[in-house]
Design a protein around this nucleic acid. Structure first.
Lengths: 203, 203
DNA sequence: ATGTTTCCATACGCAACGGTACAAAATGAA
DNA sequence: TTCATTTTGTACCGTTGCGTATGGAAACAT
């Protein structure tokens, strides 16, 4: 493992940027973009305001980086869940279980999906946020569709099925999980919901 | 039509409360609860701040009334769409068309669903909002399930279908429409999405 | 040691926010 | 006309928010 050549000139920074960004993400995740103050973020990260600004920029810049990091997390989890040679039902449930693990992460009440809980609200006024959400959704659709098409080609699904249509329902299931988690539905209930949805999608 | 006995004592109010509440709803709808200031609401309604307070209470009270009014609108529209003796496919599409009419109402870019765009964010910190969202979601599930059960009993759906599972997908479709509308997907694309989903749900 | 560089930490300025006090205006009642 | 009642409209108060200026601290280089 390369120690990344530790030879900065001045005073060493007291906080790991990557860790701090994750903590800032947690602050936004709980109360949304607008209701989260920089004081909330300093409290969550332990960084003071000038350091925060130097490291990430202003509040919106911090949020955009948090959003990008969350998509990375979510999409990597989805990819991992879909990869491998699991049966279609298993693969889909792996996606939903991975999502639930994220939606119910952290202390306190479930925060659901970071995108659904924080970015969707801002999407109307902020074009960059809107684009990020749109791209992420599209990627999810594509991933699901690829997997479903593979299932159809391998005979796991009937040849009369429509991978595009089923992919939309697979994403829709993810969306409803995201919303309901934040609305207070229990993890157990959401898992049975996902399981029912998978049952229908897989025929 | 009863004119509701117009005999108030003092100076007449300059604005119709019901209209003002709808205008306030529009303000919250665009930018969310936290990012909407009372100045925004006074601008939207034409009312000044003290009148606003006298009529509806503080900012949170205004929002809660807006939320209740929106659920009323949404649930009435859903009921109307499902009522009558339309074929199942038609009935479901009527629901989604009604929803899209709401999601794409107003000027400017689509604001999606008011609940999804504004209440979901607040649901974690505000128990009353959370309860409102939960109740609304549950009502939607129940309505869909009742209609699907009716379809199964009447032979419109196969006797081996699960109305509960299909109802979850019907609600999930509504949820994905709500999210995607706010993320910028076109109304036309969303309608074909809904149509594909209906195709799968109805077998 | 001394200087240079980089980052931390306190404190400040200014604008925006939510809420309210107070006086003027508009009506019905007497 | 005069009084009582209700709403309007302006102006204000205390708080919070974001961003930044300024001085001190911790490292490396010479």
């Amino acid at each position: 493992m390369n120690e990344t050549a530790k030879k900065p000139r001045g005073r060493p920074r007291a906080y790991e940027p990557q860790v701090a960004l994750r903590q800032a993400t947690g602050a936004f995740w709980k109360s949304g973009y607008a209701a989260t103050s920089l004081d909330d973020i300093t409290a969550a990260t332990g960084m003071n305001r000038p350091s925060l600004r130097a490291a990430f920029g202003d509040k919106r810049a911090i949020y955009l980086q948090a959003l990008a990091g969350y998509w990375e997390l979510q999409l990597v989890a989805t990819r991992k869940a879909l990869d491998g040679d699991h049966a279609l039902e298993t693969a889909l449930m792996r996606v939903y279980d991975a999502a639930l693990a994220i939606y119910f992460s952290g202390d306190g009440p479930a925060r659901g999906c970071f995108v659904v809980g924080t970015a969707i609200t801002e999407a109307v006024d902020d074009p960059e946020v809107r684009r990020s959400v749109m791209d992420g959704f599209r990627t999810l659709d594509t991933r699901f569709e690829a997997r479903l098409r593979r299932a159809r080609d391998s005979g796991e699904l009937g040849s009369d099925t429509d991978p595009t249509a089923l992919a939309l329902l697979a994403t829709a299931t993810l969306h409803t999980l995201a919303l309901r988690a934040r609305a207070g539905t229990s993890r157990k209930d959401l898992r049975t919901l996902a399981s029912k949805a998978v049952g229908v999608i897989c025929g």
